[in-house]
Amino acid sequence: SDLEELEKFAKTFKQRRIKLGFTQGDVGLAMGKLYGNDFSQTTISRFEALNLSFKNMCKLKPLLEKWLNDAESSP
């Protein structure tokens, strides 16, 4: 289901973010620079904790996926 997908992604996202050495705040700032939407550390934290509305989670997921792919592919 969509919800299970989101839960899986949130977990994976957190693990990969930590492995890359980024804080939640770093992610929020980087996404602001890249996509012009500033995200607070709290928002990233709540995403990882599945603590946002389903609609908000769905809106954030593609942006976070893109950020993660970019972060992992940059030298």
Rank of each mutant, 00 (worst) to 15 (best):
E65C: 10
A71E: 12
N56A: 13
E5V: 07
L3F: 09
I18N: 06
W67F: 12
S45T: 10
K33W: 03
I44F: 01
D70Y: 11
E5S: 14
D70G: 12
A49H: 13
F54C: 08
R46G: 12
A49K: 03
L60I: 08
N56M: 14
I44G: 00
P62G: 07
G25C: 15
K55I: 06
F9G: 03
K14A: 03
S73K: 09
Q41W: 07
L29M: 15
I18H: 06
F22R: 03
K59Y: 07
K61Y: 07
D70I: 11
L64Y: 04
L64F: 06
E65A: 08
S53H: 04
S73N: 12
W67A: 02
L63K: 10
E65Y: 04
T43N: 04
L50Y: 08
F22A: 15
L29E: 13
E5D: 14
W67N: 00
F47E: 00
S45G: 10
L50I: 05
L52S: 04
S53A: 06
L29Y: 08
D26G: 06
W67L: 04
N37M: 11
L29Q: 13
D26V: 04
E48R: 01
R46T: 05
Q15A: 15
E5R: 12
I18R: 09
L50Q: 09
W67Y: 13
L60A: 07
I18V: 11
D70P: 02
L60M: 08
L68I: 13
A71V: 13
K59E: 15
C58Q: 15
K61D: 00
L68D: 01
S74N: 06
S53Y: 00
D26L: 04
C58T: 07
T23S: 14
K55R: 11
E72M: 06
N51Q: 12
N56T: 15
R46A: 13
K55V: 12
S1P: 05
F22N: 10
K61S: 05
Q41D: 08
I44Y: 02
G36C: 05
Q41S: 12
A71C: 05
L52V: 04
I44L: 06
L29D: 09
G21V: 01
N69E: 12
E72Q: 11
K66R: 11
L6S: 05
C58E: 10
G21D: 03
S53Q: 08
P62C: 04
N37F: 06
A71T: 12
E5G: 09
G36S: 15
K61M: 06
S53R: 07
L60T: 10
P62M: 04
K61I: 06
K55T: 12
N37Q: 09
E72A: 10
F54G: 09
N69C: 06
K59W: 06
L63G: 08
S74C: 12
N69M: 12
N37H: 14
L52H: 05
F47I: 02
N37E: 12
L60P: 00
L64A: 04
Y35S: 13
S74K: 14
P75M: 09
E5Q: 12
N37V: 11
N37T: 11
S74Q: 11
S45K: 13
E65N: 09
N37G: 14
Y35F: 05
Q41R: 12
I44C: 02
C58A: 14
F47S: 00
P75S: 08
E48C: 00
P75V: 15
N56H: 13
N51K: 15
E72L: 05
E48T: 00
S45R: 11
K66A: 09
F54V: 11
S74R: 10
P62E: 06
K55W: 07
L29C: 14
E72N: 12
I44H: 00
D70W: 06
K59R: 10
F47W: 03
A71F: 09
S73A: 11
F9V: 02
I44V: 09
G28S: 04
K61G: 04
R46P: 00
E72P: 03
K55M: 09
I18F: 03
K11W: 02
S53F: 01
R46E: 14
L52M: 12
L63D: 04
S74M: 06
F22M: 02
L63I: 15
W67K: 02
E72Y: 05
S73W: 05
S45P: 10
L64V: 04
S53G: 13
L52E: 06
K59S: 10
L60S: 03
S74W: 09
K66S: 06
W67R: 01
P75K: 06
P75A: 14
K59A: 11
S74D: 08
L63F: 04
C58V: 11
K61R: 11
P62F: 04
P75Y: 01
I18Q: 15
N56W: 13
E65Q: 07
E65G: 05
L29T: 07
L63M: 10
N69V: 10
S73Q: 09
I44M: 03
F47L: 07
W67V: 04
F54N: 10
S73R: 06
A71G: 05
I18Y: 05
F47D: 00
E72F: 04
S45Y: 07
R46I: 01
E5P: 04
Q24W: 02
D70K: 09
K8G: 06
K19G: 12
N51R: 12
Q41F: 10
L68H: 03
I44T: 01
D70V: 07
P62L: 05
R46K: 15
E5Y: 03
A71N: 15
R46L: 09
P75H: 09
E5T: 13
L50H: 15
D38G: 03
P75T: 15
E65P: 02
L60G: 01
K55S: 13
N69T: 14
S74A: 14
P62H: 11
K55Y: 15
E72H: 03
Y35D: 11
L68T: 03
L60Y: 06
P62V: 06
S73G: 11
R46W: 02
S53T: 12
F47Y: 04
N37Y: 05
P75L: 14
S74G: 07
K66W: 05
F47K: 00
D70F: 09
C58Y: 13
M57W: 03
A71R: 11
M57H: 01
A49R: 10
F54S: 09
P62S: 05
I44P: 00
E5A: 14
F47A: 01
Q41M: 09
N69A: 10
G25E: 05
S74I: 10
F47V: 03
C58M: 12
I44S: 00
Q41K: 15
L63E: 06
Q41G: 13
L68W: 02
K59H: 11
P62K: 10
I44E: 01
R46V: 02
I18C: 06
K59I: 10
E48V: 00
T12N: 15
K66N: 11
S53K: 07
I18A: 09
K66H: 07
K59M: 09
N56K: 11
L63H: 13
Q24A: 02
K55D: 14
E5L: 11
E65M: 14
E65T: 06
L64I: 04
G28T: 15
I44R: 00
L64T: 02
A49F: 03
S45H: 07
N51G: 12
K55A: 12
R17S: 04
R16L: 15
D70R: 09
F9S: 05
L63Y: 05
E65L: 09
L50T: 12
S53D: 10
S45M: 10
L64D: 02
P62A: 05
E48W: 00
L60E: 00
N51T: 13
Q41C: 08
N51M: 11
L29V: 12
E5N: 10
L64W: 00
L64N: 01
L68R: 01
K61A: 09
P75Q: 07
E72V: 09
K66P: 02
I18D: 08
L50S: 14
A49M: 04
K66G: 10
R17Q: 02
W67Q: 01
S1F: 08
N51D: 12
F54Y: 15
S73D: 12
L52C: 07
Q41N: 14
R46S: 12
S73E: 10
L29A: 14
K61H: 05
T42I: 15
A71I: 08
I18G: 04
M57I: 03
E48Q: 00
E72S: 07
P62Q: 05
C58K: 09
S74E: 05
N69L: 08
C58H: 09
K59N: 11
E65W: 04
L60H: 03
F47C: 00
I44N: 00
L64K: 00
L68N: 01
D70S: 08
E72D: 10
F47H: 00
S73V: 10
E72I: 04
N51C: 08
E65S: 07
L29N: 09
F54M: 15
N56R: 13
K66I: 06
F22L: 15
N69F: 15
A71L: 13
T23A: 05
E48F: 01
A49T: 04
C58D: 10
A49P: 03
N69Q: 14
F22E: 02
S73C: 07
P62R: 06
